[in-house]
Simulated assay, not measured.
Amino acid sequence: TGLANTSHWLFASDGVYIYSFSIASNGTLKRVSSINAQQYTGTNYIEVESLFLDHTGSTLYALNNDGAGNLAIQFFKKNSTTGALSYFGTTTPGATLEAFIGNNVYAYGASCIQLSAVWSAYSRSSDGTLTRLSIDPTIPTNPNGNYCPDGDAADPASDLAVAFLLEGAPPVQLGVYTADSSGNLSTNSTYQNMPVASVGYPNRLLASPAGNLLAISGDQGLQVFYFNGSNPITSYTGLIAAHAIYDLSWDNHNHLYAIGSGKVNAFRVTTTGYKQASGSPYSINAEAITVLSK
């Protein structure tokens, strides 16, 4: 499953097909085409787990899962006139949900597998193809054990927020890395300057469009932090939702949307205050969310 959108097109997957919908000025959707993504995997058991776009919206990426934890990314070119997708390649296994930094060239993912850090990094070419980069970022040390990364989010510049678990268990601490011109990541994060989140096991990290706020969700709720570029992330809110949250989306007007536990939560969050929208949470059993700002 998965959702992604540009200003004129919505893309949705049921795990096998990816559907293209046109978006009218009043938000009405019309299905215009579909493509069987599974046929390009060579099997009938690999499914689309999530969808994401590059910053220009010209290439749609589908993260595929074979059910055994082997993830790869398919590339689809978008026809700007019809919304139709055309397949043109796949990465080798070893991917995760990647986050593009502001230059739209480098994308990163961080995950924890059997208490071992697994980093994935890609360079995007002008045609949208992703090429694997070999990186081995330094991980902060802790006198009480080893950190393992478990999720990341990029700001509009060159910074990457990373969630760390100590010995694979909560609470999460949040570090920050900065990419150089070659795509290598460096950090000044330490166990002393990484703030602690109260969300339990992390599910999703997402920076605000301005890049100055970082939302993190987990099986215990949702929290927002100040994202300070390459400087340490700092605490802001406590839990603003106290149930499992699986996916997040920001619009361009300081609104944060969160889904999980059969609910959709909506908040207005700025650097100086936050408030839940009237009527929120709404009883909607959603599996993915994407937001088009107007």
Rank of each mutant, 00 (worst) to 15 (best):
A163T: 00
S278Y: 08
S134W: 03
N212F: 09
P170G: 02
K30Q: 06
N285G: 01
W9F: 15
H55K: 13
L292A: 08
P171L: 03
I245C: 01
N26P: 04
F76P: 03
A266R: 07
V269H: 06
I18E: 08
N212K: 13
N265I: 00
N212Y: 11
A121W: 08
D159H: 10
T187N: 07
F100K: 12
A12S: 14
L85G: 02
T141L: 14
G260D: 08
N70F: 11
K275P: 00
L165I: 06
T271H: 06
A286M: 03
T141W: 06
Y17I: 02
G15E: 11
A163F: 14
N228H: 07
G2S: 10
I113F: 13
V105H: 02
D159S: 08
N64E: 14
A157K: 14
N104A: 05
S50T: 15
S20M: 12
K275W: 12
F164T: 01
G238P: 08
T187V: 09
G238H: 06
L166V: 13
R132E: 12
N265Y: 12
L214N: 01
L222S: 10
S86T: 15
A277R: 12
G2T: 01
T190I: 05
T6R: 00
A153N: 08
Q220H: 07
